[in-house]
């Protein structure tokens, strides 16, 4: 399978196998006009299998959201056909409108225009809690 090298754009590498479509959806890549390649189940020495997303243009990438989904993803910025920058991800302190609170007693269950805000309360165990009701975000 041949996918063109990109000249200017972003490559998201080391995505856990099977996660690329969720990342595509959460980053709203469907809104982009440029070429987007989604490559599933690529052989990887480190991971066995991995997914890769290549975007043939620069766009406003929300690193916080990506860090929440999987802090092990590598973000490669490509300029003029060369690797310009490798960005490291970290767990964000807060994520907005990425996770929805599942607690039926939470105010967000009835007032749906409210932003869904989750804060990191335990970095070691990657636990996020709803700022309104403190319910724990369900594992992805």
């Amino acid at each position: 399978m041949i996918i063109d090298e990109i000249t200017n754009g972003i490559v998201l590498d080391h995505i856990s196998a099977g996660m690329c479509m969720e990342i595509y959806r959460i980053l709203h890549l469907e809104r982009l006009e440029c070429s987007v390649a989604i490559i599933k189940n690529v052989s990887s020495r480190k991971m066995g299998k991995k997914d890769i997303i290549k975007v043939a243009d620069m766009f406003d990438l929300d690193l916080d959201v990506l860090g929440y989904i999987d802090p092990n993803i590598t973000v490669n910025i490509i300029k003029d056909g060369k690797l310009f920058e490798k960005r490291k991800l970290a767990l964000p302190d807060e994520v907005r409108n990425v996770i929805a609170c599942k607690n039926p007693r939470c105010i967000t269950s009835t007032e749906q225009e409210l932003p869904q805000i989750f804060r990191l309360t335990d970095r070691e165990n990657r636990i996020y809690r709803c700022v309104y009701c403190e319910s724990r975000a369900k594992d992805k």
Binding site: C106, T110, Y132
Partner: peptide
């Protein structure tokens, strides 16, 4: 006072 959790924060 509100029956929904987080309403006073809002």
């Amino acid at each position: 006072r509100h029956p929904k959790e987080g309403a006073p924060l809002v």
